[in-house]
Every structure is written in C-alpha cells, then in structure tokens.
Design a protein around this nucleic acid. Structure first.
Ligand SMILES: [Zn+2]
Ligand SMILES: [Zn+2]
Length: 745
DNA sequence: AGCACGCCGACT
DNA sequence: GTCGGCGTGCTC
C-alpha cells in the first residue's frame, strides 16, 4: 500500500498526484511544501491531500512519479486557510493554484555574509606579502572587515585568507543578513503609556469584545475622524483577544505601514508581532510566516497580503482605513483584502473591525442596513479645533487677478502666512492627461453620459465625446443648453461654450517657487519617487522642517503625523470630481477629508483651501462641514438611482491585444453569450459596453472593457465561470475578469 | 511556467 | 537540404 499526495504546482492549474517515498511517509502531510519532478524539470508545490491507502488502478492514465524532497518539516498552511483559499478562487473566478502563489510567501533560504576578524596573535607575522597586507588593512579598519571587500582589493585573496585562518591570525565569521526595514526601533514614550479610554472608546471596545466572547461573526464599522482614537480601540481589543490565547491580525494600507506604526503596536502589544510587508525581503517575510505558523507570534500586522496570514485560532481582525483603494490588488489575483477580511472573520466566527474617517460607501451602507454594527468615536478635541476649510471659487477671480495660472490670491496669501509661525504646507494637484472633459464656461456644467451619468471624455483626434463605460459617443455641442436662467440673464442670453479641462501638464511647483523663491519647495508624486526609501526620505525632510512646502499628488494626503503642516491647498478639485468613474465624488471626499486631517495637529490650527469652479458640489460642501454621514447619504441616493455599487455589484472584463480588432470582437462575443444566459434564466444582469478602456492603449496593447452589473454577486460569478469556457477567438488576447473593480482605467 | 514537438520560410 | 521562427499542447 502506497501513499499518494495531491500537489498544487503553481502556475499549473490542476493538482498533480505523486507517490510519497517510504522514508517521507508520515512526514508529508496536508500543508507540506514539496519538490517534485514535472516533465523534464522540477517544481515546488503544496500538498493539498494525502491518500494513505492508494491502490494502483489499471485505468490510471499515467504512472505516478515520486516526490523528490520535503522543503520544510512542518505544514506551511492549515485547513482554515485552505477553505479560505478555495472560496477566494471561486469568488474571483481564478485558479486555486494562483491563490496559493499569491497567498503564501516563498521559502527563502537564510542569507549569510562572511566577515573576517583579526585575532590577537602578538609575536608573529605571516610569511606571504599579500597575507601581511591583508592583516594591516583589517587592522586599519578596526579589526573586522567584510570578506567581499577584501576580495575586491586582492582579487585572489581567498587562498591567502584560508591560510591565515589555519595559521590562527584571523577568523572567518558567517553572520545572517537581516532586514534593515521595520525592525524594532524605539517606541516613543507616549506610546508605552497605559492609556485611559474615553466613554465612547470604552463602548466600542465593549461591543467588539462582546461579539468575540460570543464567538460571533460580527463586522463593525468604526467611524471616527483622524485623531479620534481608533487605534487605541484596536490595540485594546487586540490585546484582550491575544491575552486570551487567540490569534489576531491587522491590515493597514501599504503606505501607512511605517516603522512608526509598527513601533506603536510593539510598544503596547510586545515584540511578538509578525510584520508582513511587500518591501521586506523574501527571507524576512518567510520568517514572519513561520513565526505565526509555529505559534511564536500570535499577532500579525501587514498590508493587503497579510489577510492570508497563517493565524491559529483566529479571534479578531482589524482593517484600518478600510476605504483605502490599495486593499484591492490591481493585478494577478484581483482580490480586495478588506472584503476577504470580512469573509475570513465569517469563516472563523469572530468579529472584524473596519475603521475609517471616511468609510467606503459599501461598508457604510452595510451599517445603515444593520448588517454591520456601527460604532462612532467623536473627536477628542472641540469642533473649533477642526481645520477651517475654505472654498475658493475660481469663477469669481478674473484671470488677471491670479498671481499665476494655478495659484489664487487666497492660496498665495495662505502660503505667505505659514512663514509667520514657521509652519509648513501641502499642495495637492491632480495628475492630468488621463481624461479630458468639457465644461461650460458660464454655468460650469460638465458633460455626462446620458446612460451612465459618468463624465464624458473628450477625444481630440476625433473631436468627439465618449463614455468609457457604455461606448456612447457624441459630437461636442457648440453651445451649452444647461445654462440656468440666471446665468443666461447675466450673459445677455448668450449660452456658454465648452472649454477643455483636465488636460496638459501643470507646473505648480515652478509657479510656487517663482512666487516664493525663499521657501524650499519639494515635489512628491509617482514620477518623482523612485522607491519606498526615497518616499520616506522626502517625508523626513518635511518632518525635519527642511522642506516648507510639499507639492504632490494624492500620495501626500496619506502622509503621517506631521503636526507642523498647517496648510493644505488643493489646486483643482474639479479634475477629481469629473474623473470618468462613478466613484469620483467619493474619492474626492475621501481625499479632501484625509488631506484636511493632515492640517494642523498638535497645537496649531489647520487651514484647508480648495480651489474649484464648482463650489456647490456636495463633495466640497460636505468637506466644508466635516460631514461624512451627510455626504454618504446623499451619494448613496445617487448610487441607488443609477444602480451602482453598493446597490449592485460589478464585474469588469478587460481584453487586451496587439491586434486592435480582437478586444471589441471578443467582448461582443461574450456579450452575446451573456444575453443568451440572461434571457434563459431571467437573471438580474445588465451590461455596459463594450467600450474602449480609458487607457485605450498600454504600450503595444489595445484595451477594451465591458461592465456587468447585477444585484447578485453569484450571477456575476457564474458569468466568469461561463465565459472562461468560451474558447478565446485568439490566444493573443489577454482577458481579465475583475470582480468588484476599484478603478476602470 | 518551461520544454518539446512540429510545421513553414530563408540561408550555408 | 537544415536552421530557427514561434504556435500548440502537455506535464502526475
Ligand atoms: Zn455611458
Ligand atoms: Zn452652461
């Protein structure tokens, strides 16, 4: 009787069967990672089943080969994760092997670096001249030097070094290379202090712990503005559950997972926290994973991918900044870590806390429908402490009154004012050139798709307006027909004409430098930032006060605690408001609220200046009054009327190909199949498009997309499974199914 | 993903 | 005649 293991070998889609060699019987179990022969090479895989009593069947199509070796002694994932992975594969219509590939880090060997240490040996010297030189160099460098730097100086020093070692002049040490990142720093003292929760925090904590004690799946939406003390609630809840012997994990947006944040958690929860972050080396990630698997750590904190962490006896999940779009993976397996966190809590009968100052409308509507429990933390400061938000109506300023193209007199004055108390400013601008839109020069109406209510994108080469959701296309009207009566009266009954907006590049940094040459201005955006270290360096220069004005895109709104930043200026809110996406308003509200949360912490009051041509837009008005619930209820009405999420679910299908004709044709074929299915089962399904994607061509690939809308995620899921069966018209087409898409580019 | 097989064009 | 382009299909 033989033992046979079923092995998943990413990226191969099927599970493969292998004989377990006698010496590994009992060692290779569910969860083992193994190396196996496949074709003419070898591959690494995951054991997902073991048949202890395999009997050879003459009907078997192939003869089994044997597992080559066991890569790690104990299992690398457990049953709970396996169920979770299966659910994910099914929901996103992806292969299970892909989930393994994304969800479990690679086994990485330890890395060592060799160094050479001088041993005290007084009364003798080596014979060789090279050997003598080596010793004197090591002595000069303080008695210890890395092996590689010696080899750099003396090309063939390895034999000399070996000889020196046998003679006892030196010792060659091998030390493990560990990650520099995210290792214990020193937590600030205030972080260690035992904190006293206020009554609202206490109430929130009670509710969460009650659900936990009842072993109840219960999602909480914890709403509280920046500085209202959400983190204290998380930490206390995590500590209770951890102290009771259960595992917990926290996920935060990648950009928020800073050494400071980790220090803060370590200060209060101890050093036994496993950190999972994409910026860590493979080895460090694997170390964290092992610490959790072996139970040395019971708390994990990480970005998106930490939702897969091997937590034993899971008792609580926390998702901070739950609205953040970075929880959605934009490639490969397009999962949303926040949604998966909720699912994982459900599979484990435990509470999950989603915290935010600007909850996603998805989560907010769940709380309105009582599917999620709603917890609110009031500001710990008086209302007067909130930053003052001013809207600058660019219509009311004549062009000649503008100090430069993009800087209004109000913003310039505010920038000058920061010098008075030597504080700092953030200036946000939008990256342009994604989508040009047309706006009436009199009433500021922006042209929208009559079917989708999404901003129409202007295309210069064809002089046409296009809806990138449904492919509706029209010639730009020469006159505005939306100008209201007052507007016409003011303009001798002349309707407005349309101007192109959102195009071109802006030189905001140069404009500010020109106006305020003695202030140091720095830039922070995707193009200016090379990597994480560079990003942190730019922010450090702000923290140290070296940079007075930081100019950049969204990224800067997610900065950290920079109490000396008292002014946040937004150059042009309209580009974001009229982005061709049904979530444009929500995104702008989130961004502005987040940005104003940056302004003036500590003892200096903050100030926010928003430049716009549509001053009455609800996203701006509700920012003015710091009214998230008000904004959310208003925007939810729009979403409901237009049947957009959270009232429906979306599935986006993207087809990309070198051949311009393939994407629309493939999608049209799909659409036919879908209509047939819908008519047959009377399914709740509607289809927008196919249409050219807003990014119609990436490098050499032409891209089209199609949006499926349904009240039921199950129907959309069936659509994915069905369309995967449709034979692609050409292998040259790349097809992406994006369930619950976050962006439509 | 690799890696082989196989079927056509253009070169020693 | 063969070298090599990559389209297609298989791997327990
Ligand atoms: Zn449309
Ligand atoms: Zn108008």
């Amino acid at each position: 009787m033989a033992q046979v293991a079923s092995v998943i070998l990413p990226p191969l889609e099927e599970a493969y069967s292998y004989l377990i060699p006698a010496e590994l019987c009992g060692k290779i179990v569910f969860g083992s990672r193994v190396e196996v022969p496949i074709g003419k090479r070898s591959a690494r895989g995951f054991v997902v089943a073991v048949d202890l009593q395999y009997q050879k069947d003459p009907a078997d199509k192939f003869t089994l080969r044997a597992i080559t070796r066991l890569l790690y002694d104990s299992p690398c994932f457990n049953e709970e994760q396996f169920r979770f992975f299966n659910w994910i594969a099914d929901y996103y219509g992806e292969n299970l092997s892909r989930v393994f590939e994304i969800g479990i880090p690679e086994i990485a060997p330890r890395k060592f670096s060799r160094s050479v240490e001088l041993l005290p040996k007084k009364d003798s010297t080596p014979k060789g001249t090279v050997q003598k030189k080596i010793l004197s160099i090591i002595e000069k460098e303080g008695g210890i030097l890395s092996y590689s730097s010696i080899i750099e100086i003396f090309k063939n020093a390895s034999s000399s070094l070996k000889s020196l070692e046998t003679q006892g002049f030196i010792r060659i040490l091998s030390t493990e290379i560990k990650d520099q990142h995210l290792h214990h720093g020193h937590a600030p003292d205030w972080a260690k202090r035992e904190i006293k929760l206020n009554p609202e925090q206490d109430h929130a904590l009670d509710q969460i712990l009650q659900a936990w004690k009842n072993r109840e799946f219960k999602p909480f939406l914890l709403y509280g503005i920046t500085g209202s003390g959400k983190t204290e609630v998380y930490i206390e809840a995590l500590r209770h559950v951890r102290d009771a012997g259960q595992g917990v994990f926290v996920i935060v947006p990648e950009i928020a997972l800073t050494p400071q944040l980790i220090d803060r958690f370590r200060a209060r929860l101890g050093n036994e926290i496993a950190v999972l972050h994409s910026a860590m080396s493979k080895r460090a990630r694997w170390d964290s994973w092992l610490a959790l698997l072996e139970g040395r750590n019971t708390i994990a904190i990480g970005a998106r991918s930490a939702v897969f962490a091997p937590i034993k006896n899971l008792g609580l999940i926390v998702v901070d900044e739950e609205h953040d779009a970075s929880f959605k993976q934009g490639e490969n397996l397009r999962y949303n870590a926040r949604d998966l966190a909720v699912l994982r809590a459900k599979l484990n009968n435990c509470p999950v806390v989603l915290g935010s100052a600007t909850p996603s409308l998805e989560s907010f509507s769940h709380s309105e429908e009582k599917k999620y429990a709603y917890l609110e933390l009031p500001s710990r400061h008086s209302v007067s402490f909130l930053p003052s938000v001013e809207i600058v109506d660019l219509n009311s300023i004549k062009p000649w009154m503008m100090p430069t193209k993009n800087i209004s007199p109000q913003l310039l004055q505010a920038l000058k004012d920061i010098q008075l108390d030597d504080s700092q400013a953030f200036i946000l601008y939008n990256r342009r050139g994604f989508a040009t839109f047309l706006q009436c020069d009199k009433c500021n109406e922006v042209l929208e798709c009559p079917h989708c209510s999404v901003t129409l994108t202007y295309h210069q080469n064809s002089n046409s307006l296009l809806c990138h959701y449904c492919n509706y296309s029209t010639i730009p009207p020469s006159m505005c027909n939306k100008c209201p009566k007052e507007c016409l009266e003011r303009n001798n009954n002349e309707p407005g004409t349309f101007v192109r907006r959102g195009a071109g590049t802006e030189k905001v940094l140069e404009e500010i430098q020109g106006l305020l040459p003695h202030l140091s201005v720095e830039r922070l955006d995707r193009d200016a930032v090379e990597n994480l270290a560079h990003y942190r360096k730019i922010l450090t220069k702000v923290r140290d006060g070296e940079t007075k004005i930081l100019v950049g895109t969204q990224m800067i709104a997610k900065g950290h605690d920079l109490p000396n930043v008292t002014l946040v200026g937004v150059i042009d809110c309209d580009v974001g408001l009229h982005f061709p996406d049904f979530r444009a308003s929500e995104r702008v509200f989130q961004l502005l609220t987040q940005a104003s949360g940056r302004a003036g912490r500590g003892d200096k009051p903050g100030r926010v200046i928003l430049q716009t041509r549509v001053p009455h837009h609800p996203s701006l008005q509700k920012t003015l009054t710091h009214d998230f619930p008000g904004f959310a209820r208003l925007e939810l009405k729009n979403r409901k009327a237009l049947r957009y999420p959270p009232f429906t679910r979306l599935l986006r299908i993207v087809v990309a190909s070198l051949d311009q004709r393939i994407p629309p044709n493939t999608l049209l074929r799909y659409k036919e199949v879908l209509f047939r299915y819908r008519d047959c089962y009377h399914s709740d399904l509607s289809i927008l498009g196919p249409a050219p994607a807003p990014l119609a061509k990436i490098k050499t690939l032409w891209r089209w997309h199609m949006l499926l809308k349904s009240g039921s995620p199950t129907i959309l899921n069936q659509c994915i499974h069905m369309l995967r069966e449709v034979k692609a018209s050409s292998k040259k087409a790349r097809i992406i199914f994006d369930m619950d898409p976050q962006d439509m580019l």
